[in-house]
Design a protein around this nucleic acid. Sequence first.
DNA 1: AACGCAACCAACCGCCCGACC
DNA 2: GGGTCGGGCGGTTGGTTGCGT
Length: 331
Amino acid sequence: MGRPPCCDKIGVKKGPWTPEEDIILVSYIQEHGPGNWRSVPTNTGLLRCSKSCRLRWTNYLRPGIKRGNFTEQEEKMIIHLQALLGNRWAAIASYLPQRTDNDIKNYWNTHLKKKLKKFQTGVDGQNQDGFSSSQSVTKGQWERRLQTDIRMAKQALSEALSLDKPNSSTDSRDFSLSHPYLKPSQSQASTYASSAENISRLLENWMKNPPKPAARQTNSAETMTQNSFNNTTTAGSSSSEGAFSATTPEGFDSFFSFNSSNSDASHESVSVDQNANLTPENSVFQGESKPNLETHQVPLTLIEKWLLDDGSAQAHEDLINMSLEDSAGLF
DNA sequence: AACGCAACCAACCGCCCGACC
DNA sequence: GGGTCGGGCGGTTGGTTGCGT
């Protein structure tokens, strides 16, 4: 059918976002929460289309985002997940809570593709699509994808029906509890911490380096120092520890120990361990850490083994060769 | 110093889907 | 049932930066 553009082209600004625009957007979202993007431009006076506002938020300003400096472990995960899921960047991003799909996609296109190609040219008997033959030939990505989707649907249905399970992992209101990589306390804490961090950096740099007319303003925004804006963000985070006390399913722990122990420490320390005091009541960012995507309930046992144990060819094979019936048994 | 080229990445575009009227 | 809206997703573009000559 085809939709008309989300905004008319007249009077809509395009191109890089300025720090001023970022601040307007962030403060609006702080006040009203994300969502209802249609109303954002009109309510804020931003000369941006709603889509642009949403993208700016989800890809750049959203709390919990780690930028650049992909760790080796992250690289491996992306490569593995790409082989498993294909170019479903949002799904892949759901396994890397601090990364956006756009970021992962860019990193794949600019780094990993080349890396794999390089690697593959050095290895005889590899196919041409960037993956090892064992990864791409065994069953085919589409079949695996289909299997994954079916499993997702099955589990979602079964858990939706078992209402007496208070810690049901499909509770969409608390994505952090259901995501394999999101330890509840950490996810919300890091989410909010990073928000404050992002915003303060934004403003700090803005104060230091007033916007240049045609420079890469979005980059300059990254290194800002704190100013009054911090007050608003910290105020929201100052009051409770409720979310911090959530229990963690045992099976998730390995993921987090993996994540934290292997990640770029200089980045992680900023976004993970600060400003942990956050509750759903006082944070407009709660629940915003990552969209709840369909892959977040992939059975952990095999995937965990496969993803984290780089040398685990057996686990890899197990996962890929898993039949529908086998995988259904996991639930 | 100036130029050209490649790399990088933020942002845009188009398509799709579900919800709502 | 069909149209519209809001939002998500993946592919692509284009501006900026960095590096080599």
